[in-house]
Simulated assay, not measured.
Amino acid sequence: MWNQFWWVIFPYLMLALFVSGHIYRYNTDQLGWTAKSSEFLEKNYLKWGSILFHVGVLLVFGGHVAGLLIPKTFTDSIGISEKIFHASAITTGGAAGVITLIGIVLLSLRRLTVKRVRLTSSFTDLIVAILLLLIIAMGVYNTLGFNLLAKSDFNYRETVAPWLRGLLVFAPDPSLMKTVPLFFRLHIILGFALFGLWPFTRLVHVWSVPIEYFKRSYIIYRSHRQISRHAPKGK
């Protein structure tokens, strides 16, 4: 029963919340659809933490797409052996994970230790910070600690990857997750929990990429002296 709940019901419930929550939030709270920047409250932590976190997240996202959504049969067919793929995943994925972890640690320290930032943080801000910290820390452990220190022969491409692909086409096989190590399962469960919480937090700003900004007309600034010089006489 629990296997069915965690690997079939729970993921679909969180994804349903993710979609419906965004629709509801967009229709009822467009003024709150923002990152609520607090740069004027503190800059040192934010400067490095934000850069490392956002760059790391993009790299980690690409690694997850390659590792989970591209079948093992495909990489084998183009000549990439499992040994090479695994080594590449550990080195590049591990580096991306460490970068992201450093970034979220800096941002979390900023939110918790800088008084002005802490006082302007909502409850959901703190929950998101904690969730991200746990998810990323577990991901780094799964990539580096579990593979290098524990030296396990567990292969997520034979269990987690086919389960996730099945989930996306509405044909999940929860039995694939029975042998998955604990920290991998917790990493996935917390990840889906974050998806369910996403629409009700400041994370919605991810979808507000200012594309129109690049097509805007140039803004021309003139000094008061220049305006006075070109103004008609008598005015």
Rank of each mutant, 00 (worst) to 15 (best):
V204M: 14
V60Q: 09
L132E: 09
N142L: 12
I136A: 07
W6H: 04
I227L: 15
T113K: 14
L106P: 09
L112T: 03
F18Q: 02
F123P: 03
P162E: 00
G67M: 04
I130S: 05
P172S: 10
S228C: 02
R110G: 03
V169K: 06
T159K: 01
Y24M: 14
L46R: 08
I189V: 11
S217E: 05
G21K: 10
I189L: 13
T91A: 12
T201L: 11
P210A: 08
Y45V: 04
A87C: 01
G103D: 07
A35L: 05
Q30N: 01
S38N: 05
Y45H: 12
T28K: 12
E158H: 02
K83Q: 12
K215D: 13
F195Y: 10
H64G: 04
L46H: 01
A35Q: 06
G32F: 06
G49R: 03
E42Q: 14
V60C: 12
F18K: 02
R116C: 01
W7P: 08
M177S: 05
P199D: 11
S217C: 00
V57D: 03
K83L: 15
H64S: 08
F195K: 00
L119Y: 10
F170N: 01
S217T: 02
A66H: 01
I102G: 13
G56E: 12
V209Y: 12
I189R: 12
S108D: 04
V140I: 02
M177T: 09
I102R: 15
V206F: 09
L133H: 00
R222Q: 14
K83F: 12
Y45T: 07
K83Y: 10
L126E: 08
A89I: 01
Q4Y: 14
